[in-house]
Design a protein around this nucleic acid. Structure first.
Lengths: 179, 179
DNA sequence: CGGTGATTTCTGTTTCAACAGAACTTACGG
DNA sequence: CCGTAAGTTCTGTTGAAACAGAAATCACCG
């Protein structure tokens, strides 16, 4: 496939953005391409379109599958793998956040809990430092718990809440935590 | 200053996490150290504690200042700069999100708008591709607008909303968008 | 059971950012 | 003004990740 200038711009920018957020550029470019593509693509088509080595496409696709962002499909009479990206953007967002939480936030919470435990018996760590670590733990647990609850709401509710924007703040201050 | 094992663990982990999110390891470590530190530190103390070159500390501190996460203070009779990290975690979070939006999300929105414009006159880009780009633009604008509104709520309201968790979903479905 | 096309794994190379140390600049102190 | 301490900028090195191409594996076909 040949990219139109518009598609090329999109793909290149996406690659850049990925890099800034800790995602490999090839991986992000491939994801962008698959998101745009009207039909599933084979590894070879991807490699040709983006001028990447097939091996590179293979590993990048695996990574995307690991994140649950890309799925495999087959066409009758064709034994090549065809790849397709999630198209629903809400699902995309929730998937990414979910995975990053699992891979990065949860381990960080574990580390913080361990720090709090260790600092308990430990005579050398100043009390003020212990307090700082505890505050960080509490803060991140609050965010994490909030996310878990909110992410389980039906998508339509999420959309509605988002459309409300700051209006949701009105509900606060009027006995908002009645069970 | 000498790090206790607990502090060392915290700092190293933070450095790792930073790297995963596109933040230089030294920068993240320095931020962690300053967050923990009971008192502001000089560049040299930071360099000694973390075993980094002074030059490296200098550039990293500049970066942190650019993000608005670290401020400069002085002590009477000492002409060295002393550095201090924001201690309020809500402020920290909002600052980071704000900056990343400014540096990465806003330019991406610009790029997407340009793509939509270009794709308008452009005969080669398939209609389906144009539609995909438009949907991405709409989605990101929605998130961005939501963030702008919510970030302006008083911190106490934010905290209250967060503590509500999924209960906030209850307000949906009962004429939530009355002006 | 060869043979061929598809995919993955392995290995060496390249590229780029992070970093250390040196050189330089600035500001203050006597 | 000279000397020294603090801070920044410059330059070369290093190390880690990204990547290409080759080799190996797998799966299906005749």
């Amino acid at each position: 496939m040949r990219l139109t200038p518009t598609m090329e711009r999109y793909v290149l920018h996406w690659g850049e953005m990925g890099a800034r957020w800790g995602v490999n550029r090839s991986v992000a470019q491939i994801h962008a391409l698959l998101y745009l593509s009207p039909a599933p693509l084979t590894a070879e088509e991807i490699a040709d379109t983006l001028a990447l080595a097939r091996s590179n496409v293979s590993t990048s696709i695996r990574e995307l599958q690991g994140w649950g962002l890309v799925t495999l499909t087959h066409l009758l009479g064709d034994r090549r793998d065809h790849f397709e990206a999630k198209k629903d953007l809400w699902e995309l967002l929730l998937t990414i956040v979910e995975e990053r939480k699992r891979r990065e936030i949860d381990p960080t919470l574990t580390m913080l809990r361990q720090c709090v435990l260790d600092a308990g018996e430990d005579k050398e760590t100043p009390a003020e430092v212990k307090a700082r670590i505890e505050r960080m733990l509490t803060f991140m647990e609050t965010l994490s718990d909030w996310y878990v609850q909110v992410s389980r709401l039906p998508k339509s509710t999420l959309v509605a809440l988002m459309k409300m924007g700051a209006k949701v703040g009105r509900f606060i201050g009027r006995k908002s935590d009645a069970a």
